[in-house]
Design a protein around this nucleic acid. Structure first.
Length: 108
DNA sequence: CTTATGACTTTCA
DNA sequence: CTGAAAGCCATAA
């Protein structure tokens, strides 16, 4: 496994409970602001086998929407996990939306 | 080595 | 406003 994945996981672990981050944010934290796609891919690759203790559900796209295309990850499950952390989820047109103004993680 | 792909983002028509 | 296209970069074949 590339070191890139480890950086992604490390950055994702830093997301505090009750907050969410975008793929772009994670990419920027690991030093590659243009590698948002790789962030998502890293999480996808991790899923199949062993889940580390990584809050992957807190990573969403820039619109504040759950953009999971992975059929193995029911968006409703991700939404449920987020709600358990106190994040308000709005369902609209078969997609789950998050209020970024309130729940977006803002690292110093 | 070259090509293809993707849990994204931004820009342009 | 909506939708299409290109840019990006690590991994796989």
């Amino acid at each position: 496994m590339g070191n890139f994945y480890q950086r992604v996981y490390l950055a994702v672990k830093k997301i505090p409970r009750g907050k969410v981050a975008t793929y772009g944010q994670i990419a920027a934290l690991i030093g590659s602001p243009r590698s948002a796609r790789m962030v998502g891919w890293a999480l996808h690759a991790m899923d199949g086998g062993k889940l580390e203790h990584i809050p992957w559900q807190r990573v969403i796209n820039r619109e504040g929407r759950i953009s999971t295309t992975c059929l193995d990850h029911p968006p409703e499950e991700q939404a449920m996990l987020l709600e358990q952390e106190g994040i308000n989820i709005t369902k609209r047109d078969s997609a789950y939306w998050i209020d970024l103004d309130r729940f977006l993680w803002q690292p110093k």
